Computed example of a mutant assay.
Amino acid sequence: MAAPSMAAALAANLPSAPVAPVQAAPKYEALPSSMAKLIDIEADIPLNIVQLDGLVVTKIIKHAREAPSTTAHGLLLGLDLDGVLEISNSFPLPHHGGDDGEKGSKSIARHQASMLRSLKEVQADDSVVGFYQATTLGAFFNQSLLETQAIHQEKLRHGGIVIIHDLSQTARGNASFRAFRLTAAFLDAYKRSSFSTSSLISHRLTFSSILEEVPLRIRTNPLLSSFLGSLTRSTKASSGDVPPANAAPASTLAPSFSVLDLNTTGTTRNLEQIVDSLESYRTEEGNLSYLSRQIARERAKADAYIAKRKDENQTRVAQGLAPLPEEDVSRMFKIPAEPSRLDSLVLLGQIDGYAKNLEVTASTGLVKMHGAKGGSGSDKA
């Protein structure tokens, strides 16, 4: 039998490693819902600013450019800490233009649950803090956006935020990102489902007081800043005939001449959208006027019937007869409910957005046209 090796002998003589006792896994009891709100200190700190990560900016721009329409939207993920809502990730939601509402909603819900479950498995941020919406020409007012934001502000802490990305501004080289949330007055009217004239007056609601803007800043990490710097840094473009020392400097990014565009096409489209919105608003106001006249006619009939019955009862009492019983006027006369003016507010918000965008683009276009006219030498002729 072969003699054991020196290493084996030494290993046999060494004392065995002490075995650590197995500790039982700690057990945590779930906090009751009544205590969870008291322990959540961050919920008492008001939200002051939204911080958008540079990666989220690139994701939103990419999704908006590749989307088949201007209705690109998705969810925002992050964390609110010490009054700052840090948005660190996002993912797009599918657009089902041809599907019916119920089928499309179920598909979006399944996609959302699948994405959040996958993010949780890889230990990424999976806390929904709001959503983003792509728009064009500055007009983002619509009922779908208001309803979605109302749901988020009811379920999410600090109400959630909607990020508006303007495609028309980004196409001109100005990345446009704005953060909004619904005002308390609009939320109160929305919960009551009351947007009548009296409700708007009591809540002091106009199209400009539906949303309130939250300050927004964009944060870029060092890696992204280094990448952007490498793209814009000039390099020596060498060729076979030209020595590297004499080569002309070149940039990784191709030159862009978008600033020389007079942008007359965008101005024309903006004017067309304003005219269409004004026509829609005029139609909506005509419908509201018709319904108001119909309500006034029915109320006049009901008041006339009540006055007639009152006179008859006075005559019968004077004659010593028993008065006629009072009847339910609401069953005899179908008085329509006062119409909602939410559509009018939304249309006014769209017109205001188009007008503000036209103000910016038209002023910039005038300066460019004046410069082009001066550079062409037409003033000297």
Rank of each mutant, 00 (worst) to 15 (best):
residue 229 G to L: 02
residue 229 G to Y: 04
residue 229 G to C: 08
residue 230 S to M: 06
residue 230 S to F: 13
residue 230 S to E: 13
residue 230 S to Y: 04
residue 230 S to T: 14
residue 231 L to Y: 04
residue 231 L to M: 15
residue 231 L to H: 10
residue 231 L to V: 15
residue 231 L to N: 14
residue 231 L to W: 07
residue 232 T to N: 12
residue 232 T to W: 04
residue 232 T to A: 15
residue 232 T to K: 07
residue 233 R to A: 08
residue 233 R to Y: 14
residue 233 R to F: 08
residue 233 R to P: 00
residue 234 S to M: 05
residue 234 S to E: 12
residue 234 S to Y: 01
residue 235 T to W: 05
residue 235 T to A: 09
residue 235 T to P: 00
residue 236 K to R: 15
residue 236 K to E: 13
residue 236 K to C: 05
residue 237 A to M: 10
residue 238 S to H: 12
residue 238 S to Y: 08
residue 238 S to I: 12
residue 238 S to F: 04
residue 238 S to C: 14
residue 238 S to E: 12
residue 238 S to R: 08
residue 238 S to A: 13
residue 239 S to R: 12
residue 240 G to T: 15
residue 240 G to A: 14
residue 240 G to V: 10
residue 240 G to P: 07
residue 241 D to E: 11
residue 241 D to S: 14
residue 242 V to C: 02
residue 243 P to E: 10
residue 243 P to T: 09
residue 243 P to R: 09
residue 243 P to K: 07
residue 243 P to C: 05
residue 245 A to W: 14
residue 246 N to F: 08
residue 246 N to A: 11
residue 246 N to Q: 08
residue 246 N to C: 01
residue 246 N to D: 10
residue 247 A to R: 14
residue 247 A to P: 02
residue 247 A to V: 06
residue 247 A to F: 10
residue 247 A to N: 12
residue 248 A to D: 07
residue 248 A to Y: 01
residue 248 A to V: 14
residue 248 A to S: 09
residue 248 A to P: 03
residue 249 P to W: 00
residue 249 P to M: 07
residue 250 A to W: 15
residue 250 A to K: 11
residue 250 A to H: 12
residue 251 S to T: 15
residue 251 S to V: 09
residue 251 S to P: 02
residue 252 T to I: 13
residue 252 T to S: 02
residue 252 T to V: 14
residue 252 T to Q: 06
residue 253 L to I: 15
residue 253 L to H: 05
residue 253 L to G: 03
residue 253 L to V: 14
residue 253 L to S: 04
residue 253 L to D: 00
residue 253 L to P: 00
residue 254 A to D: 12
residue 255 P to N: 00
residue 255 P to Q: 11
residue 255 P to E: 03
residue 255 P to K: 05
residue 255 P to H: 00
residue 255 P to F: 02
residue 257 F to M: 11
residue 257 F to Q: 05
residue 257 F to D: 12
residue 257 F to H: 10
residue 258 S to L: 07
residue 259 V to N: 02
residue 259 V to Q: 08
residue 259 V to A: 13
residue 259 V to H: 12
residue 259 V to Y: 05
residue 260 L to C: 10
residue 260 L to A: 11
residue 260 L to V: 02
residue 260 L to F: 01
residue 260 L to P: 03
residue 261 D to R: 02
residue 261 D to P: 02
residue 261 D to G: 04
residue 261 D to M: 00
residue 261 D to I: 00
residue 261 D to H: 12
residue 262 L to C: 01
residue 262 L to T: 11
residue 262 L to N: 11
residue 262 L to Q: 02
residue 262 L to S: 03
residue 263 N to G: 05
residue 263 N to A: 13
residue 263 N to S: 09
residue 263 N to V: 06
residue 263 N to M: 00
residue 263 N to F: 06
residue 263 N to L: 02
residue 264 T to K: 13
residue 264 T to H: 07
residue 265 T to S: 14
residue 265 T to R: 15
residue 265 T to L: 04
residue 265 T to W: 07
residue 265 T to P: 07
residue 265 T to M: 10
residue 266 G to F: 00
residue 266 G to C: 01
residue 266 G to M: 01
residue 266 G to A: 10
residue 266 G to Q: 00
residue 266 G to W: 01
residue 266 G to L: 00
residue 267 T to G: 07
residue 267 T to M: 10
residue 267 T to N: 06
residue 267 T to A: 09
residue 268 T to R: 10
residue 268 T to S: 02
residue 268 T to E: 06
